[in-house]
C-alpha cells in the first residue's frame, strides 16, 4: 500500500528524513507499528492518519498521510 509518511522529532533524527512515500506491506495501524518497531527500537510513538490520532485496529487506505509521532513535549 502506498503511504505518505511523515516523521517528527527523535524519529526524524533516527531515520535521517522527515518524509517519504513508501509502498509498505501493511493494512492496519497495528501492522504499521510492528513494521516500524524494529527500526525505531525503544522510541515510543503514536500514529496519526490524515492528521487524526489512529487506534491499533484502524485500517489504512491507499495514499493516506501517515505521521509517526514521538512523545509530545509542548508547553
Amino acid at each position: 500500500m502506498i503511504l505518505k509518511l511523515n516523521y517528527f522529532g527523535q524519529i526524524a533524527q533516527m531515520l535521517h528524513k522527515e518524509e517519504e512515500v513508501l509502498d509498505l506491506p501493511v493494512t492496519t495501524i497495528r501492522e504499521l507499528k510492528s513494521y516500524y518497531a524494529e527500526k525505531l527500537q525503544t522510541i515510543p510513538f503514536s500514529v496519526a492518519v490524515n492528521q487524526q490520532l489512529a487506534g491499533e485496529t484502524d485500517q489504512l487506505n491507499e495514499n493516506d498521510e501517515v505521521a509517526l509521532l514521538p512523545p509530545f513535549a509542548g508547553g
Binding site: G9, Q10, P71, F72, A73, G74, G75
Partner: peptide, 27 residues
C-alpha cells in the same frame, strides 16, 4: 487548556545543552 495542550498537541522539544549535545524532552 494547559493540561490538554501538554497531553494532546504533537509538539516536540529538543533540550540543547551548553556543549551543543541534546536530548528529547518528554512531558
Amino acid at each position: 487548556l494547559v493540561e490538554e495542550i501538554k497531553a494532546k498537541v504533537p509538539i516536540f522539544g529538543k533540550e540543547v545543552f551548553e556543549d551543543a549535545s541534546f536530548q528529547w524532552k518528554v512531558n
